[in-house]
């Protein structure tokens, strides 16, 4: 009985967490790259705050999703890293490489296409 209760709690807590993030998950990389394109270079915390600010707290990028995504983009050669000493500690700044800049254009176009398609699906204009 205890296990069933635990299972329910587990599933429910995951479900709640997923509600916000599932749809955004696929476009997280594009969001990061777009921000870096605009801002030049940013560090992790700054990205989370910026996204929160732009979306007025609607979209909350968690650390557990952000850093793996950043590291993956870095490994793919799309991002470059600069480490700098700031108030007693080291800060890791990310910026787009040349390859990353061209890739950003592609991904944004792809995302726009996706949004357009979603809109026509969700809100179709019947032609009859």
């Amino acid at each position: 009985m205890l296990c069933i209760r635990k299972l329910c709690i587990y599933l429910f807590s995951n479900f709640k967490a997923m509600k916000n993030s599932q749809l955004y998950k696929g476009s997280l990389n594009t969001i990061i790259m777009k921000l870096l394109e605009e801002k030049g270079r940013m560090y992790g915390y700054e990205i989370t705050q910026k996204v929160k600010e732009i979306t007025k707290g609607e979209l909350n990028i968690t650390e557990g999703a952000l850093y793996p995504a950043l590291h993956k983009l870095e490994a793919e050669g799309l991002l470059d890293v600069e480490v700098e000493k700031v108030d007693n500690r080291l800060r890791k700044y990310y910026k787009l490489t040349e390859k990353g800049t061209t890739e950003t254009v592609n991904r944004l176009a792809e995302l726009e296409e996706f949004i357009k398609n979603m809109q026509t699906i969700v809100n179709p204009k019947w032609s009859y």
Partner: peptide, 10 residues
Amino acid sequence: MEMLDHVATA
């Protein structure tokens, strides 16, 4: 190092 900066800033 990266986590430390994140936590410290927060």
